[in-house]
Amino acid sequence: ADDGLGGLAKRPLYVFMMFAACTLIACKDEQLLLKALRIGAMLAALAALINLYFYFTSPAAGERLIGTGALRNPLLTSHVLGFFCTYWIAAWLTRSERHDWLPIMLALPLLAALLATGSRTPLLALVLTSLWMLPMIGRRALYLIATLALAAGICMVMAPDLLLQRGLSFRPQLWNEAIRQASEQLWIGHGYDSQFAFNIKGLGVTLNDPHNVELAVLLELGLVGLSLWLLMYGVTLLRCLQQRHAGNFQLASALIVYGLAAGLSEGSNFLSRPNENWFLIWIPLSLVAALSISQRLQSKP
């Protein structure tokens, strides 16, 4: 059950098991963990093609792509698609594949499906990820930035509604209201799994999450929890910078930054059962932790 002490206590256990499983695999064979991720990314590209087929052949093709199977929401679907799209882009940047054309070919259906969801959050996250890759990769990341800038220019000319039709989607008003409610219990928050209601003038519906992971942490765990949360990401990114010449860390850091950037305007359920939010938070973090622990074990005499 989602409610009750037993159900809530399982959630951090799920996260721990994710970290432990990735670490055990990496310590046994680091390449095995990366191959599993690569196979998952290939399957995701195939799934994107299937979803695009159903999207364009169904009667509701004019609406936003939701996805099939367990996918039930365009925004949540974009978390999954964006994660694997970032993987292939990072694989191209880091030259992780033998053939440069393979990551590009596999990233294209994921990017097309991402655009079909109508979510702008992953597009912004991809831009910020490309900027992060500059100190990690160097000149090769400039090609990605130029490509994204060109694609944005084409979208502004050919399909301006794709980026502009929904404005800021009431995000500033929502975040202001979330900060106001957070200020009522600023230091330790309202408590984990607290329920919130955000009534935004002009929106017409009541929202129950702030559409920002960091604000969700602030609301539930206060400044103390948010400080620990930011420290966790700070240590992770510092570790990636220290290992920026290692291709595995370059790729993993791209997934970290993508998830962190996407969480600035979407997502809120930061400690949940395994779901779409894990592609923004716990999967990238567990990957970096596993690679780091594996490297330290290998360096020991």
Score class of each variant (00 low, 15 high):
279 F>Q: 00
136 M>I: 07
70 A>L: 13
139 R>A: 15
206 T>H: 15
159 A>E: 02
208 N>L: 15
266 E>V: 04
246 A>W: 08
48 A>C: 12
47 A>K: 01
39 I>L: 09
212 N>P: 13
247 G>H: 14
25 I>Q: 00
201 K>F: 13
213 V>S: 01
103 P>V: 08
63 E>I: 03
76 L>Q: 11
27 C>D: 08
268 S>V: 03
185 Q>G: 02
277 N>T: 11
112 A>F: 02
197 A>G: 09
63 E>F: 06
126 L>D: 01
14 Y>H: 03
63 E>P: 05
67 G>Q: 07
4 G>S: 07
108 L>H: 09
53 Y>G: 07
110 L>N: 14
164 L>C: 10
265 S>A: 03
106 L>W: 13
196 F>E: 01
125 A>C: 03
16 F>H: 02
272 S>Y: 01
270 F>A: 00
206 T>A: 15
73 N>K: 00
83 F>L: 06
122 P>F: 03
77 T>I: 08
53 Y>S: 09
193 D>R: 14
212 N>Y: 01
128 L>N: 09
152 A>R: 06
191 G>H: 04
106 L>H: 05
113 A>E: 01
76 L>F: 05
200 I>F: 12
244 R>W: 05
132 W>A: 12
45 A>G: 03
215 L>N: 00
207 L>R: 04
109 P>N: 09
262 A>E: 07
226 L>M: 04
117 T>H: 02
73 N>D: 10
250 Q>S: 13
43 L>M: 13
216 A>I: 00
104 I>E: 06
102 L>S: 01
113 A>T: 08
108 L>K: 10
220 E>K: 13
56 F>Y: 12
106 L>I: 07
10 K>Q: 13
96 S>I: 07
84 F>T: 10
67 G>F: 08
270 F>P: 02
252 A>I: 00
83 F>H: 02
43 L>A: 11
183 S>Y: 10
261 A>R: 00
117 T>C: 04
183 S>R: 15
143 Y>W: 11
220 E>M: 11
31 Q>E: 07
249 F>T: 01
77 T>E: 06
293 I>H: 08
215 L>D: 04
105 M>L: 14
238 L>M: 11
282 W>I: 09
164 L>E: 14
122 P>M: 05
192 Y>D: 00
123 L>Q: 04
83 F>N: 02
205 V>G: 11
50 I>K: 15
8 L>I: 11
173 Q>N: 14
109 P>E: 14
200 I>L: 13
82 G>C: 06
117 T>K: 10
21 A>V: 06
190 H>L: 09
31 Q>H: 11
4 G>W: 04
2 D>K: 13
269 N>I: 07
132 W>R: 10
119 S>V: 13
281 I>C: 01
4 G>H: 06
181 Q>V: 15
122 P>T: 07
69 G>S: 02
250 Q>A: 09
296 R>L: 11
266 E>W: 03
170 F>E: 09
206 T>K: 14
293 I>T: 06
143 Y>I: 12
175 W>R: 14
26 A>C: 03
158 M>Y: 10
85 C>S: 08
287 L>N: 01
54 F>I: 05
260 L>W: 11
249 F>L: 03
247 G>N: 14
288 V>Y: 05
177 E>R: 15
6 G>A: 14
71 L>C: 00
225 G>H: 05
289 A>P: 00
274 P>M: 10
